[in-house]
Design a protein around this nucleic acid. Structure first.
Length: 567
RNA sequence: GGGCCUGUAGUUUAAUGGAUAGAACAAGAGCCUUCUAAGCUCUGGGUCAAGGUUCGAUUCCUUGCAGGCUCACCA
C-alpha cells in the first residue's frame, strides 16, 4: 500500500489537499480499494468533510490517471479504485524482483540491538513458559533484523540461586540415582534433574530441617565449596547440553551466553561502589536501592549475608552487555511479572552505569495460562515440559496425516508440529497472556500454523504440475478478478506489516497478516482455477502464485516457521 | 492496603478517536468425477457498568465492579 499510495498523493495535492495523508482500507472491497477519510481537511478548508470529499472527487475525476480507475464518495470518505492492471504489474514486479528481500527494510544507519531472551534455569525443567519465551524472543530478533537492525541474541542463564540449591538437595537425597545416570541419555538426565528440583522444592516448604539444608547448599554454591563442585558442575553441564538441543530444535541460537555465576563478584563490587556514592543505602543489614524515592519501590541488592541478589547481578550483566557489544538498545524479552522489578533496576542502573540510560527496555511477555487459569509452576511437578508439548503436537499431526502419502513423513510431521506450536504462541499480542489449552495449541485447523503451511503445499503442488518452465514473464493481464485483486492488495501490504511489527516489537502483526493473506488465497484457490485456464490467464495466475509463495515464505521465516512441499 | 496492567460473541482473539466491531474455535446448514476437503460457502451470537470529553468512543478521562502481576533479603 505504501508504494501505491505514493501514486495517489500527487493527485490529492493537485486537488488542493495538504498532506500528510493517512490512508486506510474500506470495510468492504465493493466500496473501494484504498480509502481516505476527509476529517483532517475539513478544518483546513473550512468545509464539512462530506463537501471536501465531493470537491476532491470531482477534481480527481477530471484528471488523467493510469493508477486510479475511479473515485467514489461515501459520506466523509474518498474511496479509490486502483486500475487493476496497474496494481498487478506494480505489485508483482516488486515482489518477484525482490524475492526474499521483499518486505525487508533498511535503517539509515546500522543500529545494534541486543535481544535478551531464553533465560532458562539450569537444573530445572524446561517448561512451557520457556518455550514461549524462546519462540517469542527469536521472532522478535528476526523481525528486527528484517527491519534492518544489527541484532545480537543474548541469553542469561541462572546457574546459581535457591532453585539450584533445591535441585542439589534433591540430587544428594538420591545420590546413587544421580551417579547411575552418567552414561544415560540427555533426556533421562534432564528428567532426573526435573524430579530433583521438585523434590527439593517440596521439602523446602515442608520441613525446617530440609529448608536449612537447602539454604546451606545455596551458600556452598556461592562460596564455591569444593565438596559439591563435581556434582554441581556435572549437573549444570547436563542442563546446558540439553538446552543446546532445545535451542536447535526451536531454530534459535545465541551470540552470547551469560551466566549468573559470572555476575556474582562484579555485582557486589558495583553495589559497594554505589553505596559509597549514596546510590544505595544500608537497611537491616542488607544493601538496598530506594526506589521509593522515585515513585517506585525499594529493593534489596545485597542481602544481609553479603550475597548479591538478582538485582545486583543484573547491574553487572548490563555492564557486560555494553562492554561485549555496542548496543543502542537492549531489549529484555521477559515475563510481565517482572515489570516493576525492571523499573527499579533500570533506575538504579542509571546511576551505576550512566551509559545505559535510554537503552534498557523490558518487553513484558504475557503468561502462558493453563486452561484451569492457573499460572504454571515448575514447583508443583505437574508441569508440561517443552518436550511433552512437542510430542503431543506431533501425535496430533500424525493422526491427521495417517492417510497421506508424502515422502519423508517424519520430517513433515515435525515441521508441521513446530509450525503449530510457534503460530499459537505468536498469533496474539506479545504482552497478552496466551490462554494455553493443550487442545488449542496443537490445533491444526483454522487460524493455525498448519493452515499457512497448507497453502504453501497447495502452491508448490500447482507450480510443480505446471510443466515447469520459469515464469519470469509478468505479462500484463487485463481481466483481473475480484479474488485476484484482493490478494494483490494484501501482498502489497506486507512491507507495511513488517515495519509495524518491528516498531512495536510484536511479531503477532505478521502472524495475523499471514492468516488473512492465506484466507484470501484459499478463496482465490477455490474460485480461480490455474492449470485449467487458458494460456495468458494461466501465466498470470502462476506468477501470482509465486508472489504469494514469496510473501508466505518471507513472513513465516519471521516467525521462525519453515514451509513444507507437501503435507 | 499502595503501585502497575487487563476486561470485546459460549471460548480464544482483532480493530492510528472514524464507515455495518473483523476473525478463529465451538454450534447449525451446504460443497469433493475438476490444481491437496488440514479446504470453501452460508446461518445465528459480542464491546464489564455508570458518567464525562467529542461532530463521532471498543479506543481518551473519572468512578465503580471483576481479574492478574507486584510491593526487602527468591530468581
Amino acid at each position: 500500500m505504501n508504494s501505491i499510495v505514493s501514486h495517489i498523493e500527487p493527485l490529492l495535492e493537485s486537488a488542493g489537499l495538504e498532506g500528510p495523508f493517512v490512508f486506510s482500507t474500506p470495510p468492504n472491497m465493493v466500496m473501494g480499494d484504498i480509502a481516505l477519510a476527509c476529517f483532517p481537511f475539513a478544518k483546513q478548508l473550512g468545509k464539512s468533510p462530506v463537501d471536501v470529499a465531493h470537491d476532491v472527487q470531482e477534481k480527481i475525476t477530471e484528471m488523467e490517471s493510469d493508477v486510479i480507475s475511479r473515485v467514489e464518495v461515501s459520506g466523509p470518505y474518498l474511496n479509490f479504485f486502483i486500475e487493476r492492471s496497474f496494481l498487478a504489474s506494480y505489485i508483482m514486479e516488486e515482489v518477484l524482483e525482490k524475492g526474499e528481500d521483499y518486505g525487508k527494510h533498511l535503517q539509515s544507519k546500522k543500529t545494534q540491538i541486543l535481544v535478551e531472551y531464553g533465560c532458562p534455569n539450569p537444573l530445572k525443567a524446561f517448561h512451557l513458559g520457556h518455550v514461549k519465551n524462546l519462540i517469542t524472543g527469536e521472532s522478535v530478533a528476526r523481525v528486527l533484523e528484517n527491519a534492518g537492525y544489527d541484532v545480537k541474541r543474548v541469553n542469561y542463564q541462572g546457574d546459581v540461586g535457591m532453585h539450584v540449591a533445591k535441585s542439589l538437595w534433591g540430587i544428594y537425597n538420591v545420590k546413587e540415582e544421580f551417579d547411575a545416570l552418567e552414561h544415560k541419555t540427555t533426556k533421562e538426565k534432564i528428567a532426573f534433574l526435573g524430579k530433583a528440583y521438585v523434590s527439593g522444592s517440596k521439602h523446602f516448604e515442608k520441613g525446617e530441617k530440609e529448608k536449612a539444608e537447602i539454604v546451606a547448599y545455596n551458600k556452598r554454591v556461592y562460596t564455591k565449596d569444593p565438596s559439591i563442585q563435581e556434582v554441581y558442575k556435572e549437573a549444570v553441564a547436563w542442563s546446558l547440553t540439553y538446552f543446546d538441543e532445545v535451542y536447535k530444535e526451536f531454530g534459535t541460537r545465541f551470540d552470547a551466553l551469560y551466566f549468573e555465576s559470572q555476575m556474582f563478584e562484579r555485582g557486589v563490587e558495583i553495589v559497594q561502589k554505589g553505596l559509597k556514592k549514596d546510590v544505595f543505602t544500608k537497611s537491616d543489614g542488607a544493601i538496598i536501592f530506594k526506589g521509593s524515592e522515585y515513585g517506585l519501590h525499594d529493593r534489596v541488592f545485597i542481602n544481609s549475608e553479603g550475597f548479591p541478589t538478582y538485582e545486583a547481578k543484573d547491574l553487572a550483566l548490563a555492564e557486560n552487555h555494553i562492554k561485549d557489544f555496542s548496543p543502542e538498545k537492549i531489549i529484555h524479552v521477559v515475563g510481565k511479572e517482572q515489570t516493576e522489578y525492571f523499573k527499579v533496576v533500570f533506575k538504579a542502573m542509571e546511576q551505576t552505569l550512566p551509559e545505559s540510560v535510554g537503552k534498557e527496555h523490558h518487553i513484558p511477555g504475557g503468561f502462558l495460562q493453563l486452561k484451569g487459569d492457573k499460572k504454571m509452576s515448575s514447583r508443583t511437578g505437574s508441569v508440561i515440559t517443552g518436550d511433552t508439548l512437542v510430542q503431543i503436537t506431533r501425535e496430533e499431526v500424525e493422526n491427521v496425516m495417517a492417510e497421506s502419502v508424502v515422502s519423508n513423513k517424519s520430517v513433515v510431521v515435525g515441521a508441521v508440529a513446530m509450525a503449530a506450536i510457534k503460530y499459537t504462541t505468536l498469533k496474539s499480542d506479545i504482552t497478552k497472556d496466551v490462554a494455553f489449552d493443550i487442545e488449542d495449541a496443537v490445533k491444526i485447523h483454522g487460524e493455525s500454523g498448519p493452515y499457512l503451511l497448507y497453502i504453501g503445499a497447495r502452491i508448490t503442488s500447482i507450480l510443480h504440475k505446471s510443466s515447469g518452465g520459469v515464469l519470469a514473464d509478468t505479462k500484463l493481464y487485463s481481466t483481473i478478478t475480484d479474488e485476484e485483486k484482493r490478494l494483490l492488495l494484501l501482498l502489497g501490504q506486507y512491507p507495511d506489516i513488517t515495519k509495524k511489527a518491528a516498531e512495536t516489537y510484536d511479531p503477532s502483526h505478521v502472524a495475523r497478516y499471514l492468516f488473512d493473506m492465506a484466507q484470501c488465497f484459499n478463496t482465490f484457490y477455490t474460485k480461480c482455477p490455474v492449470l485449467q485456464s487458458e494460456e495468458e490467464q494461466k501465466q498470470f495466475r502462476l506468477s501470482l502464485l509465486r508472489c504469494t509463495y514469496i510473501v508466505l515464505e518471507n513472513g513465516l521465516s519471521l516467525l521462525g516457521i519453515s514451509l513444507v512441499d507437501e503435507m
